[in-house]
Design a protein around this nucleic acid. Structure first.
Lengths: 382, 382
DNA sequence: CACCGAAGTGAATCCTGGT
DNA sequence: GACCAGGATTCACTTCGGT
């Protein structure tokens, strides 16, 4: 799983596609945002060179007139030209074009993620099946705080759909089952993910206005990348926008490539990603299959940024310390485990409540990690 | 577009249907299960005669399920080239065939529901859009007790998807907004429904084995029928199975028609539905009356003494005042208008809900005039 | 600084009937 | 079909200003 391709082997394969001198390996434009149309941009990428494509294409919302809230205020809708298509046929052609390129550049064991709403996801899903992609799961992002239906005419549109696909029915793919289970309170991660929409400090703004109308939450990308890529993998996002994929990829030690036509988005993305710090080695190590694992939804705190991977935890008297890892497990020297299990091990105690045992520093204060859980529960509890 | 909810429009719609038999008798096979292929069966149904189609089509093609092409020829996994293209092609043809008939038999303001999983729902969704159906919502049935993924190779497949569609972009449709809001603890019903799968006493069994492999829970149909049909409406289910649609329809005072080719299922369904008792008139009426708020003219409150002509109204911050006039209009200085219109004018807002904007004093309390409407509604219902 | 209330906002296919 | 007027409609969260 997750074998990283060497530049040498990549070059050998690429050479047949792109007519280049034998000795000159093609360098993937890793850590760069390619300008222009994503189909054109992807054509410059060698075949079978990408581990994961994550795509957030235009949804083709087909909105009508203005919409006001009951209090009379105006809803700031997606009116950008990039979301306008004349017909379903036009949208289908566009979709097929980028999916064909995505399929070509993916490694045989690579995977595709696409996110969409009911406006477009059925068309995308049918087309990618036609192209031979094999749907592994459809994932529902259940928004904890969606916009209501102001006119009372339909059900609140409270979710979006993600499709996770392999290259074909028999194709291999990567799935970090253990990390997902750890992240989900020792229960199998389900196909419905409850996550808040992107707002607050995470939302990129310029002069008080959102830079991109549809910025995705980092927690969503966090789960996507953690579940289906390995450290060092190359992730390409054909609709990079303000670079959520790049930011989370960098944080998680994945390599990234973006495609984006709009200069404003490109600039915002580069600035954003530059600020991002990769997690260190120990934080990135996730639970491997078969090991003991946390028994609580501590992972949700990590995923949602309440406690960052790499954070140092310690008991009240600072006799022991441990590091938070990306999947919500803890590491202390060579010992690893859940917040409860590791606390128990270190103390040689029959049991340990990790929530009250482990502390962290926030500002000048020292708090039990239970404080972070309380914050999280306040925000997410439904 | 077009949500229809008032008793007035409802009556008008029924009138037209009731008129039909006078000129051109139609005998809808209400309360019956039509034998044979559903496309053939639907051909016997008059055009524009059905209020709702609920469909739970098969999607087990790749597991060897049998299927006939629209022309009647049998798709054989052995003799046909059973590659993916053929599989999808055959399924698409089948899907298109039944959707075409469903569209024909639906009234102009009728609606379609389809349920499926990621194996088939993307194909179904794209095809129904191509046929002109307009997706109003996609609904996620989030299973509270799904089957785990035993091999740990993917996310637990914990949901199914329903599509709710009108006849077209401009078509009218029915949505019992109030009923759904009431059902959801006075919050808008969302597009994700958490419901348990069908098991226990509800699950039909014969000799210890389940009669149908994919029997849907009655709670699911309950919500579908309550949200998008009215009492007396005709609901057709082309893949009737063991008759969950019929059972719930009968209970809710809706008429039903089924199509089912398997004799075993037909028998089980008839037996099941026979046992079902319709809710009595008062239970049904009470349920609807409490949940669908009839439109109240502000004038009716004045007329009935709930607000006397001459009463001073004002907004919450008392920036504006207005006087109630005998005909239910308001006057503020030289400006006059309806409760909504005057509120809108004074604020210079694009719209205004007069019911919550205007307040009045009663005793020592200040209340929105909506409070008076509620009192009026309580009195009128009894 | 804490607390409280008001204001703002998010991928939204968001009204109906009569002239 | 365009236009107009009457009428009905919101949830969870963040930020900001006042006390």
């Amino acid at each position: 799983m997750g074998v990283i391709e060497t530049a040498k082997t990549r070059a050998r394969r690429v050479e047949k596609v792109v007519d280049l001198p034998l000795e000159q390996p093609i360098a993937l434009p890793v850590g760069r945002i390619l300008d222009g149309d994503c189909v054109e941009a992807m054509r410059s990428i060698p075949s079978a060179s990408i581990d994961l494509v994550f795509a957030d294409p235009p949804y083709n919302l087909q909105l009508g007139g203005d919409l006001n809230r009951p209090d009379g205020s105006h809803v700031d809708a997606v009116t950008d030209d990039w979301d306008k298509f004349d017909t379903f046929k036009a949208y289908d052609d566009f979709t097929q074009a980028w999916l064909v390129e995505a399929k070509r550049i993916l490694k045989p064991d690579g995977a595709l993620w696409v996110i969409g709403s009911y406006h477009n996801i059925y068309r995308v899903g049918a087309i990618l099946q036609d192209l031979g992609f094999w749907i592994l799961n459809d994932i529902v992002w259940r928004k904890s705080n969606p916009m209501p239906n102001f006119r009372g005419t339909r059900f609140t549109n409270a979710h979006e759909t993600l499709l996770w696909c392999s290259q074909g029915e028999k194709a291999k793919y990567h799935f970090n089952y253990r990390a997902m289970k750890t992240l989900n309170d020792e229960l199998q991660m389900r196909s419905d993910w409850v996550l808040p929409i992107c707002n607050g400090a995470e939302r990129l703004k310029e002069g008080g206005h959102k830079v991109h109308p549809t910025q995705k939450p980092e927690s969503l990308l966090y789960r996507v990348l953690l579940s289906t890529t390995e450290k060092g993998d190359v992730v390409l996002d054909p609709f990079f926008g303000t670079g959520t994929t790049g930011a989370v990829a960098k944080r998680l030690g994945r390599q990234w490539i973006g495609c984006e036509r709009e200069g404003v988005y490109r600039e915002a993305a580069l600035k954003r990603i530059a600020k991002e710090l990769p997690l260190d080695e120990s934080a990135l190590t996730t639970m491997q299959a078969g090991r003991s694992a946390p028994k609580v939804a501590f992972g949700a705190l990590v995923e949602n940024g309440y406690l960052k991977p790499g954070t140092e935890l310690f008991d009240k008297k600072r006799r022991w310390t441990a590091t938070v890892r990306a999947d919500g497990s803890l590491a202390s020297g060579k010992q690893t485990g859940s917040i409860h299990g590791l606390g128990k091990e270190l103390q040689g105690a029959p049991s340990c409540n990790g929530w009250t045992f482990w502390h962290y520093e926030t500002g000048s204060e020292v708090k039990p990690i239970d404080a972070a859980r309380q914050l999280y529960l306040l925000a997410v509890e439904d």
